[in-house]
């Protein structure tokens, strides 16, 4: 990972990224001239005060929002040039999202929730089942496939959300406050799971968090201050 960019062949390359919102006559610059390189297998944490642009950065990296200026290139695809259906298709193929509030569909079982990203692929029923069972197995919920979200604890629901994020073998995971709604013990379980995904499965994870204990699990912590990236170290955070 490098802040400031370079000529490397990182998985994600962010160049001169700007994002501004216009509210009435006021222009709000959320991100300003941001440059970043992320390598495959990196686990980064973004920290910063509310309104510093963390979630906006995640949305841009995930192709949910478009920048005002600059570019984002993921595995050779410049996603800032994609729009509409192409961007949606790219997102389905490359990005796994994990949200603070889990965002599971309450009327679907854990199995069906995890299966959702696969419904738009050409996979047959048996193949989808195999993928879903594998993903739920990785997160340790192989025995809870037929449980509805209301029948699961917060930590279990977040694990289902992680299974949904990895089921289609996403290129990288974007986690927005994944432990923000969990107690300490459940939060640790989720962080252990993310560690496992990075260490054993080679996943690239970019995580937004307010929690220093969550951030210290990352390989690198980046601070966003008024839309500008500043590098920090977990040890410094502890201090």
């Amino acid at each position: 990972m490098r802040i400031g960019g370079g000529d490397g062949d990182g998985l994600i390359k962010v160049r001169n990224l700007d994002k501004k919102y216009v509210r009435g006559s006021e222009e709000i610059h959320v991100l300003q001239g941001l440059n970043l390189d992320v390598d495959k297998g990196d686990f980064l944490a973004f920290m910063g005060p509310s309104g510093s642009g963390k979630t906006t950065l995640l949305n841009l990296l995930g192709g949910l929002d478009v920048p005002s200026a600059g570019s984002i290139t993921v595995a050779g695809d410049e996603i800032t040039r994609l729009s509409g259906g192409k961007l949606t298709a790219w997102r389905a193929r490359h990005v796994g999202f994990v949200f603070q509030m889990y965002n599971l569909i309450p009327v679907l079982t854990a199995f069906r929730n995890v299966e959702l990203p696969l419904l738009l692929t050409g996979l047959g029923k048996a193949e989808r089942r195999k993928h879903v069972e594998t993903a739920l197995g990785v997160v340790g919920l192989g025995d809870r496939q037929q449980h509805y979200p209301r029948q699961l604890s917060g930590g279990q629901q977040q694990r289902v959300a992680i299974a949904r994020a990895i089921v289609a073998d996403a290129t990288f995971l974007l986690c927005d406050e994944p432990t923000g709604d969990l107690d300490r013990r459940s939060a640790d379980e989720i962080l252990n799971l993310i560690d496992l995904l990075v260490r054993d499965h080679g996943k690239t994870v970019l995580m937004v968090t307010h929690d220093p204990r969550a951030a210290e699990r990352a390989q690198q912590v980046l601070h966003l201050e008024k839309g500008v990236l500043v590098e920090g170290a977990p040890s410094a955070l502890r201090a």
């Binding site: 509409g84 259906g85 949606t88 298709a89 999202f97 959702l116």
Partner: peptide, 16 residues
């Protein structure tokens, strides 16, 4: 609204 947004997030296109 939130659930539909999640569907779009995980890759459901507009037409779907």
């Amino acid at each position: 609204t939130g659930e539909l947004a999640v569907l779009k997030t995980v890759g459901f296109p507009d037409w779907a």
